[in-house]
Amino acid sequence: MNKQSILNLPVKDLDKSRAFFAALGFAFDPRFSGDNAAYMHIVDGAIQAMLTTEPFFQSLIDKPVANAREGNEIVICLSCDSREEVDSLIAGAAAAGGRIPHRPEEHGFM
Rank of each mutant, 00 (worst) to 15 (best):
H102W: 12
D81R: 10
Q4N: 09
Q48V: 06
A27R: 13
L9H: 02
I100F: 10
E73Y: 11
D29C: 09
A94F: 03
R69N: 15
H102Q: 15
R69M: 13
M40Y: 01
G45T: 08
R99E: 15
R31Q: 14
D44E: 14
Q4F: 06
Q48L: 11
C80P: 00
E84V: 06
I74Q: 05
R31I: 00
P64C: 09
E54Q: 13
G92E: 10
G108N: 10
E105M: 12
Y39I: 00
C77W: 05
G71Y: 05
G97I: 03
F57T: 04
G92L: 00
S59Y: 01
R103S: 13
K12V: 10
S82R: 07
L14G: 07
K16I: 04
F20P: 02
C80L: 05
A94T: 11
F57Y: 15
N8V: 12
A91D: 09
S33P: 02
L9D: 01
A93W: 05
R69W: 08
D87A: 02
H102A: 15
A22Q: 13
S82A: 08
S5R: 08
F109N: 05
M40L: 04
I76D: 07
I100K: 09
F56S: 08
D29N: 13
L7H: 08
A96I: 01
A91V: 05
L78Q: 03
A49D: 00
E85R: 04
R69P: 00
L89P: 01
S33R: 05
A94Y: 00
D87T: 01
D81L: 06
E105S: 13
D15A: 15
F26H: 00
E70F: 06
A27C: 08
N2I: 14
